[in-house]
Amino acid sequence: MDNQEGIIDYVDKIGYPVVIKPVNGKMGRAVYANIKDKEQLMTAISEARLAYDYHEYLVEKYHAGKEYRIYVVDNKVVAVTHRMPANITGDGQSSVKELINKKNSERRKNPYLRRKLIKIDSEVQNSLKKLGYNQNSILKKEERVFLRDKSNLSSGGDPIEAMAELSKEVKQIAVDSLKAIPSLPHAGIDIIVDPDSNKNGVVLEINSTAEISFHCFPVQGEAIDVPKAIIDYYFPESIDKKKANFYYDYNRLLEPLKTGVAEEVKVSKPLIGNLYTRKYIVTGKVNKVGYMNWIKNKALQINLSGYAKKIKKDKVEVFLVGSNKVEVEEFESLCWKGSKRSIVKNVESKQIETGLDKLIKFGFEVII
């Protein structure tokens, strides 16, 4: 990036339009697409130097067309998502700013997009200016305006499930791209499809650590379970097995490792066989006296999962799941005992059907 004249000379050789992006970037940061002339190129270089800390950039030929993220697992396309750049659609009454706010309100309802909102930055303002609009402009009904050239979801793009619309030829391009890296069994392939022929496409990137959440939460189309495809690849012996309703809180498990508090984390053993559940409603002096943490420690000692949750000032709910019926039922005596500072006045035992119809987290947690 320091060799500005070298960049200009190279662009002159490959021709405009071009794309500039950092060698080790992510989430669309510092990516400048569809640069059409030297003036725009100089502006992009200046902005990149001022706003970002990347030192090495790639200069590529820009290809027009629809962009797709194709996820390939073991030579099979398992998901296709069209990533549409940030956009709004007019209603004939609302201003551009109001339409962006409405779009963001919808994005907040999506578990994946709720923090990936459309921000009115210089790129958005420049896009509007090119179209002769500003934040106060009123768009015609059904008029769609694209606010960015790049399609990154982190900057306001829309994930649209698109398996059916992608041609078999382009899907094969994605599969062949993955085959070019023998050590990589699965990856996300970014492809631009030729607007004049849906059988042709240009590979932009092969993402070995591609984000997969947006395949599960599209704004249009069916959710695709990419995590399942990856797990089935690594553990084929479990494909036809009955799945348990238990899960680990992966982020919480990693937290002590990331913060340096611990060098090793041990997780609870998985529960197998018949499962038994019980709920205890405990009344008394059971809050802010170490009662729930005491219950948690006792449950973990005998490999019971569940939670202790505050219901009222003087009431706690204890929910237990275990593979040993006797241990689950006899836990009532521990609920009566409690911590040193607690005073238990009553324990109400409630039987729960053993057929669990909801997900249960492995381990035991305290819910305040």
Rank of each mutant, 00 (worst) to 15 (best):
E5H: 13
D9N: 15
K13M: 12
G15W: 03
N24K: 10
M27F: 13
V31A: 04
Y32I: 04
A33I: 05
Y52I: 07
D53L: 07
K66N: 09
Y71N: 10
D74N: 13
N75T: 07
A79H: 07
A79N: 04
T81L: 14
T81D: 03
T89G: 01
G90A: 06
D91N: 14
I100F: 02
P111C: 06
K119H: 09
K119L: 06
N126T: 03
K130Y: 10
L131G: 05
L131T: 02
Q135Y: 04
N136W: 02
K141L: 04
E143V: 01
F146H: 10
S154M: 03
G157H: 01
E161W: 08
A164K: 13
L166F: 08
S183A: 08
K199Q: 15
I206L: 07
N207E: 10
H215E: 04
F217G: 08
A223C: 14
I230Y: 02
D232S: 08
F235A: 11
D240G: 08
A244T: 13
P256E: 05
L257K: 14
V261C: 05
V265D: 12
V282A: 01
T283K: 14
A299S: 15
A308N: 08
V321T: 06
N324M: 07
E327R: 09
E329T: 09
V347L: 06
Q351K: 14
K358Q: 11
I367P: 04
